[in-house]
C-alpha cells in the first residue's frame, strides 16, 4: 500500500514511474504527483460519499419515494466552479513544462535519427552510425528524426520524453540526461510485425568519456575483424529483417550456409554464390534474384565502400 502511494523517488524507479534520469523528468514527475494526489482526493470523495450513501440509506425492496429537494443552484454552481479553477491550473502548469520539453535549447549536441521497420539508426556528427543512442551526461542533446517508411515514435521513459517520427518531415526531441547508464528506448507508435522489438538503448557516458568513445567507435575497421564488422552491418542496415541466420524462412534467402552454394535464379539459370555475386547483390540486388523470392531488396550503392562489402562477405561466409 505504501508502495502504491509512493509516487516519485529521486533517480530510482518508484511504484508508478521509471527512474528519473533527465532534467525534464523531475519537472514532469512533480506535475504527475500533483495530479495524482488531486485524483486520489476526488476519487476518495466520490467513493466515500457513494459507499456511505449506498450503505446508510440502503432500504428494503418496495420502498416508496422520498421527497427532498431536487436541486440547489448554489451547490451546483460550486461544484462547477471548483473543477473549472482546478483544470485551469492543471492546464497552465502542464503547458509551461511542455513548452520547455518541446523547445530544444540552442547549441544542443545534434544526433540524426532514422526510424525504419524495425530499428533505430543514430548518425553522429562525424558520420558514424550506431543502433544505440550514445550521449554525454549533463549535456543538452537534440535528436533530429525522420522515418524511412511508416510512423514510428521515439520513447525514452526514463527521460519522460516521446516524439513521433514521421516520414517526409523532421521532428525533434531533446533531453539532458542527469545520470549515466543504460536506459530503454521504445518505439511507441505501432509500425507493424516487429513493432515491439524496435527497441534500442540510450547509453549515457560519464563526463569526458563520450568523445573518446565516439572516436573509438567510428574507427570500425581498425578495431574489429571483418567478420564482426559484417555482423554489425547485418544488424544495423536492415539485412536481418529479411535474411535469417538460422535457416528460417524470410523475405530473402537465409545466410546460413549460403556461401559457395549454387542458387537457381528466378529468370532461369543458376549462379554460384561467391564474392562477386554477393557484391553484385548488395550493389545491384535486382540483377540476379534467387528463385522463389521477390525483387524487393533496396540497393546499398553509395552506403558501403569496398572495405565494408568485404566485411559483409566475410560475415556471410562465417554463417554456417
Amino acid at each position: 500500500m505504501i508502495g502504491f502511494l509512493s509516487t516519485t523517488g529521486a533517480g530510482e524507479p518508484s511504484f508508478w514511474l521509471p527512474s528519473q534520469s533527465s532534467t525534464i523528468a523531475q519537472r514532469v514527475d512533480s506535475i504527475w504527483e500533483f495530479i495524482f494526489w488531486l485524483s486520489v482526493f476526488f476519487f476518495a470523495l466520490v467513493v466515500v460519499l457513494g459507499a456511505r450513501f449506498a450503505l446508510k440509506y440502503r432500504a428494503a425492496r418496495g420502498q416508496g419515494t422520498v421527497a427532498t429537494t431536487d436541486h440547489n443552484t448554489v451547490l451546483e454552481v460550486v461544484w462547477t466552479v471548483i473543477p473549472t479553477l482546478l483544470v485551469v491550473v492543471l492546464f497552465w502548469i502542464g503547458f509551461r513544462t511542455y513548452i520547455d520539453m518541446s523547445t530544444p535549447p540552442e547549441n544542443a549536441y545534434e544526433i540524426q535519427v532514422t526510424g525504419q521497420k524495425w530499428q533505430w539508426l543514430f548518425t553522429y556528427p562525424n558520420g558514424y552510425v550506431d543502433e544505440n543512442l550514445h550521449a554525454p551526461v549533463n549535456t543538452d542533446v537534440v535528436l533530429v528524426m525522420t522515418s524511412e517508411d511508416v510512423i514510428h515514435s521515439m520513447f525514452i521513459p526514463a527521460f519522460r520524453t516521446k516524439q513521433d517520427v514521421v516520414p517526409g518531415r523532421y521532428s525533434k526531441l531533446w533531453f539532458n540526461a542527469t545520470e549515466t547508464g543504460e536506459f530503454d528506448i521504445y518505439c511507441a507508435e505501432y509500425c507493424g510485425t516487429s513493432h515491439s522489438d524496435m527497441g534500442a538503448k540510450a547509453i549515457i557516458h560519464p563526463e569526458g568519456e563520450y568523445e573518446p568513445w565516439l572516436k573509438d567507435a567510428s574507427n570500425l575497421h581498425g578495431r574489429f575483424p571483418p567478420v564482426e564488422i559484417g555482423e554489425k552491418y547485418y544488424k544495423r542496415f536492415g539485412c536481418k529483417q529479411c535474411h535469417s541466420l538460422d535457416g528460417g524462412a524470410g523475405i530473402g534467402p537465409t545466410f546460413k550456409g549460403l556461401y559457395g552454394t549454387m542458387e537457381r535464379l528466378s529468370g532461369g539459370g543458376s549462379v554460384l554464390v561467391d564474392e562477386n555475386y554477393i557484391r553484385e547483390s548488395i550493389l545491384n540486388p535486382q540483377a540476379k534474384v534467387t528463385e522463389g523470392y521477390s525483387p524487393v531488396m533496396p540497393t546499398y550503392q553509395g552506403r558501403f565502400n569496398d572495405q565494408d562489402i568485404t566485411a559483409i562477405i566475410e560475415f556471410i561466409k562465417s554463417v554456417e
Binding site: T146, P167, G168, R169, Y170, S171
Partner: peptide, 11 residues
C-alpha cells in the same frame, strides 16, 4: 505551423 518541418517535394 508544422509546414517548415516538412521536407519540400518529398515523394
Amino acid at each position: 505551423a508544422y509546414a517548415p518541418d516538412q521536407i519540400p517535394g518529398y515523394a
